[in-house]
């Protein structure tokens, strides 16, 4: 029973991590590449860590909930590092692909 839950959670996590990295390689410009790692990889890690939590709670004595800390930490920090990266990309005026709408919305920085 628990083996099934762990396996499904592990597979979901692995799939999301893989999707995030595929997005990193496949997308044409930096701004689109950022979407894969900030979202898919974070959820993949959360799912994988939940699997680890269930695994250690069932195989070893006592409940093991400290894996939540890593997923909490990643959930908190992923948007901030994404924000810093897109800020530096805008500062360096990286090219976006041509069909990007609303480029005028970017203001010049000081």
């Amino acid at each position: 029973m628990f083996e099934w839950i762990i396996s499904i959670l592990l597979l979901i996590g692995g799939c999301f991590i893989l999707v995030g990295s595929i997005g990193l390689v496949k997308m044409p410009d930096f701004y689109m590449r950022l979407h894969g790692p900030t979202k898919a990889t974070t959820l993949g890690m959360a799912s994988l860590l939940t699997a680890a939590m269930v695994f250690f709670s069932t195989t070893q004595a006592g409940l093991s909930i400290k894996e939540i800390l890593i997923s909490l930490f990643l959930l908190l920090t992923a948007p901030i590092s994404g924000y810093m990266m897109i800020k530096s990309a805008i500062h360096h005026k990286l090219d976006c692909i041509e069909r990007t709408k609303g480029i005028d919305n970017i203001e010049d920085d000081v």
Binding site: I17, G20, F30, R33, L34, P37, M85
Partner: peptide
Amino acid sequence: PDRILALDTMYIN
């Protein structure tokens, strides 16, 4: 920034 993004994803992986 692309390389930083790659490194960031790499440590999570």
